[in-house]
Design a protein around this nucleic acid. Structure first.
Length: 207
DNA sequence: AACCAGGAGAGAG
DNA sequence: CTCTCTCATGGT
């Protein structure tokens, strides 16, 4: 079953090719600082939300010119309601507004994207994970897609797929993460593309 | 018109 | 550690 994990990428790549659509930005290499900030923001907004609604919320942020971590922090907690209204289409907008502010404050307090990107994964992950509204999946989304750190992201699509393929019945986040990381070359580019393909496959095979 | 979409926090058992 | 409730909008 270990080998089937290793073969997953080749199989999915053969079917879907390079991750496209919503994933073209997340899997883009290299990314600009602005693009990395966008990925972080979208990582929060996409929690339990249809991607279509995330796009809508992002459009609102862009139009209102609060589409950067610095702008979000300068908005401050006093205008949290403003931020909340902008991201409303993504759902859970009141808590997500708070989460975004907390994330933005943290990144800037650490000296910004380029600084934080230099921190080793082992030190960085616990800090990101400690942020309100950032659980294992969102933390790894940020680490992998915004900061190019080699951590494999586990989500519901991944759990369904490994079950479907008869690889394992395990559903624990860290067990599955270990399974993937142990059987794949430690390369953030591979992790990015494979997880993207798993989600694309999951959405596709539903209809 | 119920059901769900790339979760996470808080509380209970 | 596993279950359950909550947060909320927009598309089918």
């Amino acid at each position: 079953m270990a080998r089937s994990v290793a073969k997953l990428y080749q199989e999915l790549k053969l079917i879907y090719g390079k991750p496209s659509g919503q994933w073209s930005l997340w899997c883009k290499r290299p990314k600009t600082i602005t693009e990395r900030e966008q990925v972080m923001i979208e990582a929060i907004l996409t929690q339990r939300a249809n991607w279509r609604n995330v796009v809508s919320a992002v459009a609102h942020l862009k139009r209102a010119r609060v589409f950067s971590l610095k702008k979000i922090t300068s908005l401050g907690s006093a205008d949290l309601a403003v931020l909340a209204r902008l991201i409303r289409p993504s759902g859970f907008y009141q808590q997500k507004a708070r989460y975004l502010l907390g994330l933005a404050n943290f990144i800037l307090a650490q000296g910004g994207i380029e600084k934080i990107k230099k921190q080793p994964l082992k030190d960085l992950r616990p800090k990101i994970l400690a942020l309100k509204g950032v659980g294992p999946e969102t933390a790894d989304d940020i680490l992998l897609y915004a900061l190019d750190k080699p951590v494999f992201v586990i989500d519901e699509y991944t759990r369904r797929l490994v079950k479907q393929k008869g690889i394992t019945m395990e559903s624990d986040y860290y067990c599955l993460q270990k399974l993937f990381e142990a059987n794949l070359k430690k390369d953030y580019r591979l992790y990015q593309d494979l997880h993207a393909l798993i989600v694309i496959n999951g959405k596709q095979s539903k209809k």
